[in-house]
Amino acid sequence: MRILHTSDWHIGRSFHGNSTLDALRGVLDALTREIVERGVDVVLLAGDVFDSATPAADCYSLLTDTLLAIRDAGAQAVVTSGNHDSAARLGFQAPFLGRAGVHVVTDPLTVGAPVTIDDDHGPVHFYGVPYLEPALVRHLWPDETLRTQEQVMRHAMSLVEADRAARGGRSVAIAHCFAAGVEPTPQLEREVRQDLRQGSLDVVPLACFDGPDYMALGHIHGRATLSERVRYAGAPLHYSFGEGDKPRGAWLVDLDADGLADVAWVELPVPRRLVTLRGTLDELLFDERFAVHVDDWVCAVLTDATPPHEPMRRLRTRFPHCATIQPDPERRRDDTVRTYRERVARETPDPQIVDDFLALVRDGDGASDEERALIADVISERRAEAAQ
């Protein structure tokens, strides 16, 4: 059996205020072409189908079109809900969809009850584990202690293992969680902020996933191989500049009569590259080394000591897809310089106080001659008013 492992489509997510629907549609079209060309039997979508619990109508249209294309390509689909999804909305009419070859698993009480799909070697049991928020599911298993993701996933996988032991045969499990073995970078911590527990990520140990021939995980947006049989596929699009250098694609998983036979990476197209460019505004606008990025999504890190005027408007004259600006002035540091409080603590003239303040916030650049004249005029006027 040939399986394509995907996750985290996040249909409906915006990118710095820009819709990603058209770009995602193009990538999912490419994915369905891969299904045809590679003879895929089953497509797995490991959670975060949508980016919102209340997706817009055009998000449903994209999902419907893609699932139809997958079925037209001859593959069945097993879909689980993630923390961004509404399980109730995603699972609407799941029993009817299952009869059409699209198996949507969103009900926690179905954990341990597989979707079984046959090939020439017999049945393969697919165990979908929807995202399980401890506070929302602990009442379903009142005899269990379920306060963390680890405890919930241990319980869910124990149900899977009990069923596997009774059925035998080959098996694949699908889950949406943060597993041990993935480095929690700052960007990743923002992506999975729902799992923050007392300042650290609520990590599920790899030992929880022992048993199935393959474990298809979702929740992080970059591909990751935690073991030969436990993997993340990542998202099909780049949804942040922190992901810009990570490949986009899916895992192609082959099962033979004995279980896992091979896993290979399938690249998917990147509609528009993401780059982070660093320099002063003038450097970004005129330096020829940045010319190759005029069609990319751009994060501009501006190193100007003084904030420039209308930087976004000016940057977009060269980079139409400049999405965000991050000021990061190259500071002139001098440990011997007095603090601002030390400068004004004595009998410092008012014009000098203002000049010192401007030098502080401008990283050394005090008032210009024109500004000093204006400051002197304003101070003189205020003194005259106070003397009346």
Score class of each variant (00 low, 15 high):
H155C: 12
M157P: 01
S158E: 13
E161Q: 15
E161F: 01
R164E: 14
A165L: 11
G168I: 15
R170I: 11
R170Q: 09
I174S: 04
A175S: 11
H176D: 15
F178V: 13
G181N: 01
V182M: 05
P184F: 08
P186R: 10
P186K: 06
L188E: 01
E189G: 05
R190F: 03
E191W: 01
R193P: 00
Q194N: 10
Q194W: 00
L196V: 10
R197L: 13
Q198P: 00
Q198T: 11
Q198R: 12
G199N: 05
L201Y: 07
D202G: 07
D202W: 02
V203F: 03
V204W: 01
V204P: 00
V204D: 11
L206W: 00
A207L: 08
A207E: 15
F209Q: 14
F209L: 14
G211Q: 10
P212F: 06
P212E: 15
P212H: 09
L217F: 01
L217I: 09
G218E: 10
H219I: 14
H221R: 09
T225E: 12
L226R: 06
E228L: 05
V230L: 04
G234E: 09
A235N: 03
P236F: 07
H238I: 13
F241Q: 02
E243W: 01
G244I: 08
D245R: 13
D245K: 14
K246S: 15
G249Y: 06
G249F: 05
A250I: 10
W251V: 14
V253Q: 08
D254L: 07
G259D: 08
L260P: 01
L260H: 03
L260M: 04
A261M: 09
A264K: 06
A264L: 09
W265F: 13
L268E: 08
